[in-house]
């Protein structure tokens, strides 16, 4: 789904490259953490995937397209298959939750009946069906981030990029957001999440790409936030077990004990409905990619 081949990026004012000879391949349906200190090139990498920037050298391929060769007028098509979530949510304050999500469909010319049916459905998926008519400043940070995820997901992208989505959130809320992104992943979306949240990375045990000064220093399946081995903590996360390596319960959890109960909320279609979406063997997931025409 995503291939970086010897990619380097120099900014005109930079004294050293933001990315230096990075080669990596991310398969369709993978979930990848992108870690590294501030300024290590995580955001630059995400910007390259969106064609916000062009690589100075090397090749970036997203969904089979050489990103640098996409003509300018075709770039919007790329961005329709690559959803995006940020630390600061980037919601429109003068629009309701539903209108914020609908905006993403309106501006790509989706017909009204489609917008009217998908938006409430997607808000239900992120657990905000009740708050459709609220304004962003009436919501908590976690709820705002869920709106942002709904907006990124409403067009059913094939890739979701998340740039420190939990950066402004407390640990418990971070877990909820993590759950939500995991549910998006379970639905078949490739997810790349840049983060500083060591607890989440350690708990989820997914593939970890670590950047340091623009160099890819680690590409570890099931890795932790740091290179040093960390006891697996997957069971601290209610929706993670299906894809996490089976482990014995941890002796100490780095996340608050109250997290699991609240973390469950977003991925449940509604109160009292059994089964967690995304878990194999569970009833058909509402997150499954909708047969709603091409997104590319």
């Amino acid at each position: 789904m995503i291939v970086l081949d010897a990619v380097s990026k120099w900014y005109p004012s930079g004294i050293r490259p933001a990315l230096s000879d990075v080669s990596v391949e991310i398969a369709a349906g993978e979930f990848v953490f992108l870690v590294g200190p501030s300024g290590s090139g995580k955001s630059t990498l995400l910007r390259l995937l969106l064609r916000e920037e062009r690589a100075s050298a090397g090749q970036v391929v997203v969904a089979g397209r050489d990103v640098a060769r996409i003509p300018d007028r075709r770039v919007p098509r790329l961005r329709r298959i690559v959803g995006c979530v940020f630390q600061d949510y980037r919601l429109l304050p003068n629009r309701t939750v539903a209108a914020n999500v609908a905006f993403a469909l309106d501006v790509i010319g989706r017909p009204r009946h489609v917008v009217r049916s998908i938006v409430p459905e997607t808000l239900e998926l992120v657990g905000l069906g009740e708050k459709a008519q609220s304004y962003p400043d009436e919501l908590s940070g976690g709820e705002q981030q869920r709106v942002a995820i709904a907006r990124a997901f409403v067009g059913r992208p094939r890739v979701l990029l998340a740039d420190e989505p939990t950066g402004n959130l407390d640990p418990a809320t971070s877990l909820e957001i993590m759950d939500l992104l995991d549910a998006v992943h379970q639905a078949g979306t490739t997810v790349v999440m840049a983060t500083h949240n060591a607890a989440l990375v350690d708990a989820m045990r997914r593939r970890v790409l670590e950047l340091s000064d623009g160099v890819l220093v680690r590409d570890e399946a099931g890795g932790g936030y740091d290179t040093a081995p960390v006891p697996p903590l997957a069971t601290a996360l209610p929706t993670a077990p299906a894809t996490s390596p089976p482990t014995s319960p941890p002796s100490s959890a780095p996340v608050p004990a109250s997290a699991p109960s609240s973390a469950r909320i977003p991925v449940q279609p509604g109160p009292g409905v059994p089964g967690t979406p995304g878990v194999p063997g569970a009833p058909p997931s509402p997150w499954a990619p909708a047969p709603r025409g091409p997104v590319g």
Binding site: R73, P76, R79, R90, L92, F103, V107, I108, G109, R151
Partner: peptide
Amino acid sequence: RRETAIMRLVGASNGTI
């Protein structure tokens, strides 16, 4: 600028923006 940034992000065409 917020609206146009989001429009760009979700793949609105240049004409639409």
